[in-house]
């Protein structure tokens, strides 16, 4: 639903990680669920959507019940943070080496989405807030440069 547009990219990231890293998929959905409930849990279309998302989360949690990243919040936090920083560092290395391409733009953007997801564990650190801001800005900036044929600085 349009009211939940703010979490559509997090849900897409969840889908993309379904096989590759189900823990990432789970926490992206948990973030979307929590945020979605704050945005709109009253209108029928949003309620229907959120109930379906909750069903999915509960079944994922059952499937992943042996994974410490799901059963222990602190392990989950570390998993998502490490993954986000890995994405960030890959994109940052490409950027510093002057290699600008779609994949690195996506890595910057995914890192920023996963830093949003970290907020399910509590308030973000100042460092993570800065990384998120930088990653989001870099993704937009390089994307625009490539689109207009400019070389990013």
């Amino acid at each position: 639903p349009a009211q939940l547009k703010a979490v559509q990219h997090h849900l897409r990231t969840a889908q993309e990680h379904e096989k590759r890293d189900p823990v990432v998929a789970y926490y992206c959905r948990l973030y979307a669920m929590q945020t979605g409930m704050k945005l709109d849990s009253k209108t029928p279309e949003c309620r229907k959507f959120l109930v379906k998302l909750m069903d999915q989360l509960e079944s994922m949690k059952t499937e992943l019940s042996d994974d410490d990243s799901i059963t222990q919040e602190v392990v989950g936090n570390a998993h998502i943070e490490n993954y986000a920083l890995k994405m960030f560092l890959y994109a940052d290395n490409e950027d510093r080496a002057g290699r600008f391409h779609k994949n690195m733009i996506k890595s910057f953007y995914t890192a920023s989405l996963l830093l949003d997801v970290l907020s399910v564990f509590g308030e973000l650190s100042e460092e993570n807030i800065q990384h998120r801001k930088y990653a989001r800005w870099k993704a937009a900036y390089i994307h625009n440069c490539l689109k207009s044929g400019e070389t990013p600085e």
Partner: peptide, 27 residues
């Protein structure tokens, strides 16, 4: 009927909040 609709919506919302709390509880 408006108030019935509103209370159904509120009950469903509560159920969702409870399910979310249970999901987070076991973490």
């Amino acid at each position: 009927t408006g108030s019935v609709g509103a209370s159904v919506a509120s009950a469903e919302q509560d159920e969702l909040s409870q399910r979310l709390a249970r999901l987070r509880d076991q973490m």
